[in-house]
Design a protein around this nucleic acid. Structure first.
Lengths: 377, 377
DNA sequence: CTGAAAGCGCTTACAG
DNA sequence: CTGAAAGCGCTTACAG
């Protein structure tokens, strides 16, 4: 008798108060007493509700699902739940799902396409109504099969091809970082670009490269290093850079955890932040502000990405037209790019007019290079 | 038509090959062809399997569940999935569940008893067969109600009362830390004890206090500070200690993230690790080794706790007798308690015979104070 | 306002 | 070896 305890059924209530299950069902499925009056007398309604409450009745989701052909289940696939960023996005998804009467089933894919396919099949065999995928590879052809089968899904965090997605504007995020570094006098910048298949790292890197190029600064291709989005990956990528090149002005880790790994590698060589090299992370995780050297980073609305992903998927399930969403990141400046301990930053050599004051917003953030170069209002 | 695509049913296959759904069901539910021979001819078996494969048939879990009165669903409640430790434990749970044909439904309770009750009700209304709870409060009376209802559950990570649990031996972990600190010459120790309702922090603290007391060292009660098990909590607890007391010899943060917070607070005051103060964390998360100052910490088998929790619950569901399990932690010594930069540690003043060499294992870990005090083999 | 009936997809005695 | 039937708990036309 594995585990299932006794739950009251419609029949329990029906026979207790002397009506049929049909009536009980209709009353319990009515939003309000007044709408229930279409189906039952005031007295019946009261007695149904009382009995249901007394028994702690809740409809059997398996029976409801079988009858209505719906599961109220959403499948979620993430690279790894251990990753703070994905865990936070998932929290957003689950919270929103709960609010809409859905439950979610999550699984790790470890960014392995084979495992991804496997877990998607498992999810589908559980009859999830749709999928939210946080592990898309930018050219992921394996998404085609699931799309062709008519499965509805939305991507979160990472975009891929033309599939519907909710992302942060990672290109903008990269630009904000590069412009901040330029504004503080750095132009020789190494980038920890993350996995080559993740649009997050790709776009953040490209955004930075584009902004630098717009300022006349070229990023050396071998200062752009790929690797896992975690502490270990950041450490190794940084070690690779340090072993082959003279120390750059700044390191842009496209992930906070990679930035922490970079800190470790830098410290091993006695290199201090920000005096010897500036360091920037990405995501503004809970750690960033509390690190020994507080980390300049880009805040991305992780929780909101999850919430919106769920909302978008539900819209798709209702066959409403939907469009991809791109949320806005904000730069958060802390000591790791600190100007406090450093000689006043010279303007980047490539800027044409050094006399032009930089334009910054109220938080001291210089939002676009163009704005920085424009003469003030 | 929200989302559900067409799935082949037993009827699809049955009519295709000219048998009844009963036969198809029996064949498909047979483990092997030979056992299926009890139910069908070799030819029928072959044709059923072929047709099922061609259609990508998978049984509808709602129908199966309705009929068999089982959901193959396990509910999991954690304080917060954003927490690396709980996320890792959950990965262990889900992995094991998957292997046993179960799926899991996770939710955060944020350690709020009200929310806990709410999410448990939601899980139960989804007809989970049992629960794994990672958010138990040590005297949590609210577990009684669920127990009285006959719901089977096991606790993971934290123990409470006499409920079945899978934990790490936190008392031992605390002892290992204290003995290591004593062995490196520290005896004035502050403890970031975590939330007062979590057995993890309580036991780790008690283990340390007991070991110190056994060495004749008393821990001042106001050097034991409670607070959240996260970066922010660790930072605040440390600030409280620093503002009210002279600097202790060592800080034992009963959680790695709290230790990172402590690092931040120490750095703000220009206090260096390990020269001015030693710092110890707990859990050996991926961060510990890669931090600017690599963190001495205690490794706890988080993933294994999850796996075993699931195994224990399944045993309970089969009405097998089960007992709580307590897994063994190991001390991992790194620079944050480093001896390299520090004058050779004097033996703690309270140790009776200073001439007795300390006994250590191959990894340089002194496992029990008793062992340390015994003369070598 | 209420009931009787069908049926979602499955499993499993009961017959043969 | 195979089928016909019942029934898990629900919802929802169809009748009245």
């Amino acid at each position: 008798m594995a585990g299932r305890r006794d739950h009251a059924t419609l029949q329990t209530i029906a026979s207790e108060i002397g009506v049929t299950p049909s009536t009980v069902s209709r009353v319990l499925n009515s939003a309000s007493d007044s709408s229930a009056r279409r189906w039952a007398s005031a007295d019946t309604i009261r007695r149904v509700r009382e009995s249901a409450a007394a028994h702690g009745y809740s409809p059997d989701p398996q029976a409801v699902g079988l009858r209505t052909r719906r599961s109220n289940l959403i499948g979620v696939v993430v690279p790894r739940l251990q990753d703070y960023v994905l865990a936070t996005i998932y929290e957003g998804i689950d919270e929103a799902a709960r609010g809409e009467g859905f439950a979610t089933l999550v699984t790790n894919s470890l960014d392995d396409p084979k495992k991804h396919e496997l877990v998607v099949e498992t999810l589908l065999s559980r009859r999830v109504e749709g999928l939210i995928l946080g592990d898309a590879h930018i050219d992921g052809t394996y998404l085609d099969t699931v799309a062709e089968r008519g499965v509805k899904f939305v991507l979160v965090s990472r975009r891929a091809r033309d599939f519907i997605s909710v992302t942060c504007d990672d290109h903008l995020g990269g630009r904000l970082v590069a412009e901040h570094l330029l504004a503080t006098g750095r132009s020789n910048i190494a980038i920890l670009a993350g996995e080559p298949y993740a649009s997050t790292g790709i776009d953040r890197t490209q955004g930075a490269v584009d902004a630098l190029r717009a300022a006349g600064v070229d990023v050396s291709a071998d200062l752009v290093v790929h690797g896992p989005f975690d502490v270990q990956g950041g450490r190794q990528a940084t070690e690779r850079i340090l072993s082959r090149h003279p120390l750059p002005d700044a390191i842009f880790a496209t992930n906070d955890f990679a930035a922490i790994g970079a800190m470790g590698a830098l410290r091993d060589r006695g290199i201090t932040i920000p005096d010897d090299v500036a360091l920037v992370g990405y995501n503004d995780t809970a750690l960033a502000a509390a690190l020994p050297v507080p980390l300049t980073t880009v805040r991305s609305p992780m929780h909101e990405i999850g919430r919106r992903g769920l909302a978008l998927l539900l819209a798709m399930l209702r066959d409403e037209p939907v469009e991809s969403q791109r949320l806005t990141p904000t730069l958060v400046i802390r000591e790791s790019t600190g100007t406090g301990r450093r000689a006043p930053a010279p303007a980047p050599v490539t800027v044409r007019d050094e006399s032009v004051p930089q334009r910054r917003d109220a938080r001291g953030v210089c939002h676009t290079l163009a704005a920085c170069l424009d003469p003030p209002g």
